[in-house]
Design a protein around this nucleic acid. Sequence first.
DNA 1: TCCATTCTCTGACTTTAGTCAGAGAATTCG
DNA 2: CGAATTCTCTGACTAAAGTCAGAGAATGGA
Lengths: 295, 295
Amino acid sequence: MDAVTISQVRRFQRTVTQRIGALDDRFLATDRPLGQARLLWEIGADGSEVRALRARLELDSGYLSRLLRSLEADGLVVVDDGGGSDGRVRTARLTPAGIAEREELDRRSDRAAASLLEPLSQRQRERLVAAMAEVERLLLASTVAIDVLDPGDPSARHCMQAYADELARRFDGGFDPARGISADDQELRPPAGMLLVATLRAEPVGCVAVKLHHDAAAAHLKRMWVDPGTRGLGLGRRLLAEAEARVAASGIRTVRLETNRALTEAIALYRASGYREVEPFNDEFYAHHWFEKRL
Amino acid sequence: MDAVTISQVRRFQRTVTQRIGALDDRFLATDRPLGQARLLWEIGADGSEVRALRARLELDSGYLSRLLRSLEADGLVVVDDGGGSDGRVRTARLTPAGIAEREELDRRSDRAAASLLEPLSQRQRERLVAAMAEVERLLLASTVAIDVLDPGDPSARHCMQAYADELARRFDGGFDPARGISADDQELRPPAGMLLVATLRAEPVGCVAVKLHHDAAAAHLKRMWVDPGTRGLGLGRRLLAEAEARVAASGIRTVRLETNRALTEAIALYRASGYREVEPFNDEFYAHHWFEKRL
DNA sequence: TCCATTCTCTGACTTTAGTCAGAGAATTCG
DNA sequence: CGAATTCTCTGACTAAAGTCAGAGAATGGA
């Protein structure tokens, strides 16, 4: 990769960690250690399952337990089985004192952020905030990982369900998967096909299914979905490119797909990615447009 | 300050520290603790005075000493009196093994930066790098502090010297301070006047002198200088605004200044900041333009 | 010249962060 | 139903990071 680009990224890292890290130290520093403060923050006003905290903060379970004990000892937190169905899972909740301390942290963070902006002119502030939003958006995009998952995987199921729900909402007359061309689990397991799932911090945020039809000349894409909350990150394009790369790796040189006229942004994506509209090559009930791309 | 703006800054902080911090951990992690690795890095290929390291990394002197001892024990560093004139100051230098390890850290950092860019499209990379450069530039700008310094202060002297050097370089026929209107130390100490100095991480990067003339109706600005390396950060504008605020605070309602035609960017700044060109109000040898602003 | 200051270093600590093994209760899967 | 797994917790550690006091040599200023 371009050396100038990389050195810009590293310079950014240095400046930002210095400047942003310094704020953390100066403002968040109560008499409370950073680990406890972070946990206090992460529990939130509505409480959190201990299990979720462990996942979000990526902490050792023993260590987390001890942190909770120390917050409990200070009267900021109570831990109980939050009335949930699973008797193993415990829930941490802030006491009024805990809420007060969390609000204090909040105020300090606000002041820290304000102190960053304070020396700048109005115009500079606007530009900084806009550039920050852009950096954040693209860093988020670069955090998304795309992997082949088994269709039975919970993340995969979540995507399929979300896909079906969205189509049901957007199609005139709803969507019934049974009426469309199948893409059931067997067809999406290698070597028959595969399911690519995009995940952002362990949350599934997009997918695309590939049916390889090794006997036929063309692979077939189905179940293309991107979480509405993560649109604009170029995820659709990445999923498509990843799928195409895998198809090409299997020796097939043509990719086909069909889509519904309601899915305007998908259609735009296909066109922009080099897909040509072709005559119908199947009788998919929900399709209005058929596309093909030579790899 | 605007709550939306502040929350954008805080969201940025969270995303960036997560994403950038994770890279640190995953890639920089040799078998060497972070503190040692940072120190190794900071010593640099040419060595550094221990005193300078302490200042740059803001470490306790005992702690730093111990870190140096452990790097020395691993054969990566030697500490000696670097042949300097001050026998108390010691200098740390990397051994060949130390240089090799530093280069390894360097390669890992490069790889970390590359891994950040890798999932993105070419277009996204370009946008990310551009936005990073903008954030960095503005964070740098917001790091600059402006303070009133005594003209005898080393930072103040540095600015005055840099100012004179620059004029000597840019004026046709050079610059001799003795031929211009005076602005000597006595005139730049309260209450007669003051000297504002902008510093970026303890480095002086700009200044402006204010002569108050309490008897007269107008204050007088002189010695406006911004370090060439930090131009484009809006520093000139900030210095000017700060000076005007101090003038206003002393009850004076008019600011005057004169400048040379060679200083085109300064002239543009004065105009953009609301200064009107007026008839010559003094006989400054080096001046071609005279400006005035009502506060 | 002498006194205060600077610079580095060592000794003696504390706190924070984190790891690992395993136990006990609850749940899920075959 | 029984076995495997999940979830939380405690005990017993280690390593890293950092603090504080003070000593000894070198330097600078009155």
